[in-house]
Amino acid sequence: MDALKSAGRALIRSPSLAKQSWGGGGRHRKLPENWTDTRETLLEGMLFSLKYLGMTLVEQPKGEELSAAAIKRIVATAKASGKKLQKVTLKVSPRGIILTDNLTNQLIENVSIYRISYCTADKMHDKVFAYIAQSQHNQSLECHAFLCTKRKMAQAVTLTVAQAFKVAFEFWQVSKEEKEKRDKASQEGGDVLGARQDCTPPLKSLVATGNLLDLEETAKAPLSTVSANTTNMDEVPRPQALSGSSVVWELDDGLDEAFSRLAQSRTNPQVLDTGLTAQDMHYAQCLSPVDWDKPDSSGTEQDDLFSF
């Protein structure tokens, strides 16, 4: 819950932080000083300027060897085509990944977070970031790969997607708890209302004896509580940590079903599988986004697919 609360507080303090972009060759504004600060901008989305290598189908939802083989196929196909790589912007948030063309600003792909089953910074092609997700059109699994400016960037994108998945799962947990509370309150309110109706004398007997209905007592009954809980029953509950912020979080049926399955089948359902080692994760978390744009010590960066 700490990640969720800190993310909400950060967004309320400075929503404009989320509009910064990394990996864009110096076009961005001043960047936060450390990885923790940038992680807090996830709610509205972190932007990464990358190059799209392509996509291939895979048979399993996750796995280092599986993704490595898929990336190898994608890279080989991209090299064989001889075409310049498409420059894209990857927007990562707890909602998922939005992929747009840098030149036309046209939407290429919009992947809900619950469809993503794996992401990684490839070991062999260490400047490549990739994720595996279920197609929104059918049940097939797709591996999408992107060329980053350097290994640090690939690791940073991988960690960002993993963190977005974690925050999304926490949102789901909060929403589920809130819905259970509202359902319980609604049920209790309905029981109270039913009890009051059972003990209320029939209207005919009131008229016969000349008694008047006590409207004041009726007004004191917990009807307002019942209506408050039943009027918006169809509205999706939102985490309290975000009250007053500009973010509107809505959970669709697909996300609810997917996270429910994860909660039942996995020990740590909030953790998205990645190909990063503990050492890689520690190294990337210690980086400032400013470091992502620094040239690798191995030599001059080449803006070309064939540089790796």
Rank of each mutant, 00 (worst) to 15 (best):
250 E>H: 03
99 L>Q: 15
39 R>Q: 08
230 T>M: 06
307 S>L: 02
15 P>W: 04
182 R>F: 10
58 V>W: 14
124 M>R: 14
65 E>K: 08
268 N>D: 11
195 A>S: 12
41 T>R: 12
211 N>S: 10
157 V>L: 02
263 A>M: 00
2 D>F: 07
293 D>V: 06
67 S>V: 11
64 E>Q: 15
270 Q>T: 02
99 L>C: 10
230 T>V: 06
268 N>H: 01
6 S>H: 14
35 W>F: 13
302 Q>W: 07
258 A>V: 07
60 Q>K: 14
172 W>G: 01
131 Y>D: 11
13 R>V: 11
14 S>Q: 04
281 M>L: 08
77 T>V: 04
181 K>G: 07
44 E>A: 13
58 V>Y: 15
191 D>N: 05
17 L>I: 11
156 A>N: 01
21 S>G: 09
184 K>H: 03
149 T>E: 03
264 Q>E: 10
147 L>P: 14
112 S>V: 06
108 I>K: 01
101 D>G: 14
129 F>I: 09
131 Y>K: 05
144 H>K: 14
83 K>C: 04
158 T>H: 01
80 A>D: 08
207 V>P: 05
100 T>A: 14
147 L>D: 03
43 L>A: 15
97 I>H: 09
63 G>V: 13
39 R>F: 09
252 D>N: 15
136 Q>K: 11
205 S>L: 12
116 I>Y: 06
207 V>K: 03
230 T>D: 09
191 D>G: 15
125 H>E: 11
88 V>C: 11
97 I>T: 11
222 P>W: 05
201 P>E: 00
36 T>Q: 08
219 A>R: 02
60 Q>H: 15
78 A>W: 01
216 E>A: 09
271 V>Q: 02
224 S>N: 01
43 L>H: 14
268 N>T: 00
55 M>A: 12
115 R>Y: 11
214 D>G: 11
80 A>V: 14
266 R>F: 01
304 D>V: 15
122 D>Q: 10
26 G>P: 10
195 A>F: 02
95 R>H: 03
157 V>D: 01
134 Q>D: 10
73 R>K: 11
2 D>S: 08
46 M>I: 15
266 R>C: 00
22 W>A: 11
105 N>W: 14
35 W>H: 12
73 R>P: 03
176 K>A: 04
64 E>T: 15
301 E>V: 05
287 L>F: 01
253 D>M: 07
29 R>M: 05
172 W>Y: 01
91 K>R: 05
202 P>W: 05
165 F>G: 01
112 S>Y: 11
52 Y>E: 10
225 T>W: 03
122 D>F: 03
28 H>T: 11
209 T>E: 04
288 S>F: 02
234 D>Q: 04
52 Y>R: 04
215 L>R: 03
117 S>A: 09
252 D>G: 12
177 E>S: 12
184 K>R: 13
110 N>T: 01
209 T>C: 03
185 A>S: 10
141 L>E: 05
172 W>H: 01
236 V>M: 08
236 V>I: 08
64 E>D: 15
207 V>M: 03
156 A>P: 00
62 K>T: 09
278 A>R: 06
130 A>K: 14
8 G>S: 13
297 S>E: 08
225 T>C: 03
241 A>V: 04
184 K>P: 15
237 P>D: 08
163 Q>L: 03
170 E>H: 03
237 P>Y: 07
17 L>G: 03
222 P>T: 05
241 A>W: 01
291 D>I: 06
156 A>G: 01
294 K>W: 04
169 F>A: 01
142 E>R: 10
31 L>G: 12
161 V>K: 04
97 I>W: 09
307 S>V: 11
14 S>L: 00
290 V>F: 04
119 C>I: 07
80 A>N: 12
44 E>M: 09
77 T>Q: 09
301 E>A: 14
295 P>I: 13
262 L>V: 08
81 S>N: 10
290 V>Q: 05
246 S>W: 00
18 A>L: 03
235 E>R: 15
261 R>Y: 08
83 K>W: 06
147 L>R: 15
303 D>E: 08
87 K>F: 13
84 K>C: 14
305 L>H: 09
97 I>F: 04
254 G>K: 01
103 L>I: 11
294 K>R: 00
290 V>I: 15
159 L>D: 03
131 Y>W: 00
295 P>M: 06
225 T>I: 06
198 D>H: 01
176 K>P: 01
171 F>Y: 04
45 G>W: 13
256 D>V: 14
9 R>W: 15
296 D>M: 15
26 G>H: 09
40 E>R: 09
121 A>M: 06
119 C>G: 10
214 D>I: 12
40 E>N: 15
88 V>I: 14
267 T>S: 09
66 L>R: 15
210 G>P: 08
127 K>R: 12
8 G>W: 00
243 S>Y: 04
76 A>T: 12
81 S>G: 07
7 A>D: 13
206 L>S: 08
218 T>E: 07
143 C>H: 08
22 W>P: 10
124 M>D: 09
284 A>I: 01
34 N>Q: 15
104 T>F: 07
268 N>P: 01
117 S>E: 14
175 S>Y: 00
191 D>M: 04
250 E>S: 15
107 L>T: 09
184 K>Y: 12
203 L>N: 02
142 E>S: 01
301 E>F: 11
242 L>M: 04
